[in-house]
Design a protein around this nucleic acid. Structure first.
Lengths: 207, 207
DNA sequence: GTCTATAATCAGATAGAC
DNA sequence: GTCTATCTGATTATAGAC
């Protein structure tokens, strides 16, 4: 009896977790496609295939849905960062992360949140998982930035924090969508272009 | 009698136009501060000091309000472009426009619109004044970009359209707000930093 | 936990008097 | 054209049965 119960509970929990993951995937896609304000909870419920009330049993508010999606991408970022070999040069790790970020965005999997909404900000700041992930990612990027500056690979006259913000900003760079809408370039070309403007700048190379 | 009427009508029209300009100024500030979705028509009316119904006599929809604000900044851009002397190098004109754009944004006068909202897109595309202004500005910038590339000042391996988008993107660059929130730099320093990352890139200068 | 049905609210837009 | 008052629809969130 006991082992049967244990199995049953575990299975139930697995189902619940799978459903939550399905919800988060849907939220992620909708946030990437239309943004936080335009995404409605009805839409999420319909897309997942469950009732809206059931959704609210899993996540107590729309803001918490968005926060869960952010936690999800933050985990993906941490996982990607963990795959980078230690012997790679700091600047190349930075470049890899910027490239990965833009790939996720072009794949339609980068949630876009308004930076002004205060309720949403509160939900994010109050979410330990999100804040922990953000800190960990920022620590990794920050150490690479400082190393790359010390090695003379990244411009040392720019504060590390400004470099960090510039890296993060690639997650919501409208140039990617504009070039994609233009239809003249495929994703790989777009990424190469923006990588170039980001690291080499708009100026012609001297010499 | 006739001349008196003429004066009266002219005065009335002046008042109307002044009120419309006040509306647009308010919309401009609110759009810059909170974005299109978060800005409410009630807010606009209250801030201008008129009834909401009166607002709708001037502008038939919220989208038209936003479009009017965009027309306003577009005119300001055209005016600024017109002040640049012909003898200035193309790349320096580009730099001047990028700098001006970021100054307007840091001053809280750059309306921020969601690029996804289709109703809003329709209103903008259907607005002849906006489209004309956008075309004129894009033509000016485009010719400077091509000239600067021909002169070896701007990287020729990047398509001109990508350069143009990168310039426009400074109008909604979150790096500016983030650095401003940090409080470690004043507006002039922030602009210099982003000017540097935009044109010189993140890489250290060779040599 | 999941559902149907409903509450509660808010925001865009309008009616009609003046 | 401007106002007060109202309509209409959409959206977040919840009650209560199963």
């Amino acid at each position: 009896m006991k082992s049967s119960n244990v199995v049953k509970v575990s299975f139930k929990e697995q189902m619940l977790q799978a459903r939550e993951e399905a919800i988060i995937r849907t939220v992620n896609l909708l946030l990437a496609e239309k943004g936080f304000e335009a995404m409605t909870v009805d839409e999420v419920a319909a897309s997942v295939g469950i009732a809206k009330a059931s959704l609210y049993k899993h996540f107590p508010s729309k803001e918490d849905l968005a926060a869960a999606a952010m936690v999800s991408v933050m985990r993906r970022a941490q996982a990607f960062i963990a795959t980078l070999p230690a012997e790679v040069a700091a600047v190349d790790k930075l470049r890899a992360v910027v490239r990965w970020t833009m790939e996720v965005k072009l794949a339609g999997e980068m949630p876009s949140l308004p930076s002004q909404n205060s309720k949403l900000r509160a939900a994010l700041i109050g979410n330990r998982d999100y804040m922990d992930g953000l800190m960990e990612v920022s620590d990794a990027l920050g150490s690479w930035i400082e190393a790359a500056q010390a090695q003379g690979a990244i411009n040392s006259s720019i504060p590390a924090i400004a470099i960090l913000y510039t890296v993060y900003a690639r997650a919501c760079d409208p140039v990617l969508e504009f070039l994609k809408m233009g239809g003249q370039h495929d994703d790989a070309q777009i990424i190469d272009l923006v990588m170039s403007t980001c690291f080499e700048g708009l100026n012609a190379r001297p010499g």
